Amino acid sequence: MTQELKLERKGVFFDVDDTLYDHLSPFRQAVIAIVGEREGFPYEEAYHRMRYYSDKLSLEMGGAGVMENGASTELMRRRRFELSLAEFGIRLSEEQASAMQAAYIGCQFNITMFEGAKELIERLVKTGYVVGLLTNGAENHQLRKIRAMELDHLIPPGRQFISGKVGWDKPDTRVFHHVNEATGTKPENSIYIGDSWRNDVIGAREAGWSVIWFNHRGASPESEEHIPNHIAASYEELAQLLL
C-alpha cells in the first residue's frame, strides 16, 4: 500500500442556510412586505423562532423527506410564520401567513454568499480536503439554493447531502454517519460548520465529529452538555481556524 493510500481523508462539511449565505434577509423582506416596516422590531429574534418552528413542525409531520410539496408542506410553512410572529405581538391571518410565505420563497433564491465563503471553499478544495454540504430540507428546495450559489464546480453533487433525500434530519447522527460512508471519511477526521446549536453543534458532536459553531449572530449557547470545538463569527475567522 502506498503512502498516499494510507493517508486519512479529512473532510470539511458546511451547513447551507444561514451558514453559507444570510438567511435572515429574505425573512426580513417577507415580513416587511406583508405587515410593513416596524421600528424596533427584533427581526433576528423572530427569525430564530421561525427556524425553531420550521424544524419542530417538519419533524412532527415526518421530516424533510416528506416535505417536498403538498398540503402538509404548505401548512407547516404557513404555521411557522403564524407561531413565530405571534410571540412578538403580530397576529397573522391564514391569508397573511400564506402571502408572507410566498414573499419569502420569492426572494429566498436571490442569494449572496457571505463575504469570503466561496474563497474559503476554493482554498479548502485546493488544499486537498474532502469538502461537502450537509443541509436539512426538501431536496429540490435546497438544490435550488445550491445552484443559485453556483457551487457545483467546487462541490460535486455526490458531496451535497440533503436530509430530504438521505432520509434523516440533523441532529440525527445517522445522517452524519451516512456522509462519512459516502465520502470515505471518518468521524474523527470530519469537521462540521453550521449556525444551529441544536442541529449542527449537538448533531455533529453526538456523531463524533469536530464542529465549528458559525455564530455570526452572537447567539448564546443553548446548553452546557455539548461544547463546540471552536466558535467563529466570520469567514475570516473560519479561514484562520481551518488553514
Rank of each mutant, 00 (worst) to 15 (best):
K118V: 15
L134P: 01
N140C: 03
Q96E: 15
V131F: 07
G116S: 04
I121N: 07
E115R: 04
C107W: 08
N136L: 02
V130N: 01
V125N: 09
Q101V: 11
H141V: 04
G116D: 07
T127P: 05
V130H: 01
L143D: 03
L143E: 03
H141N: 03
T112P: 06
G106A: 14
E119D: 14
M113H: 10
Y129Q: 04
T127Y: 05
F109A: 06
T135H: 01
T127E: 10
G106P: 10
L143N: 01
K126C: 11
A117H: 04
G137L: 03
G132K: 01
T127M: 12
N140Q: 03
L133G: 02
I111L: 13
G106L: 10
E122F: 13
L124T: 13
I121V: 15
I111N: 07
I121E: 09
Y129A: 05
S98Y: 05
A97S: 14
V130C: 05
Y104Q: 08
S98N: 09
M113S: 15
I105M: 14
E119V: 13
A102W: 08
I105Q: 14
I105E: 13
Y129F: 13
G106F: 11
R123V: 13
L134G: 01
A102M: 09
H141K: 00
L143I: 05
M113C: 15
T127K: 12
Y104T: 08
N136P: 04
A99L: 15
C107H: 12
L133N: 02
E139S: 03
L134E: 00
E115Y: 05
Q101N: 13
Y104I: 10
L143T: 03
M100E: 10
S98C: 12
Q142N: 02
Y104M: 07
Y104G: 07
Q101I: 09
L120P: 10
E95Q: 08
G106Q: 08
M100A: 14
K118R: 15
V125A: 13
T112H: 08
A138Y: 00
Q142A: 02
G132D: 04
H141D: 05
F114M: 07
L120N: 09
T112E: 14
I121M: 12
L120K: 06
A103D: 11
Q108V: 07
N140H: 02
N140M: 02
S98I: 11
A117F: 06
T112N: 12
K118H: 14
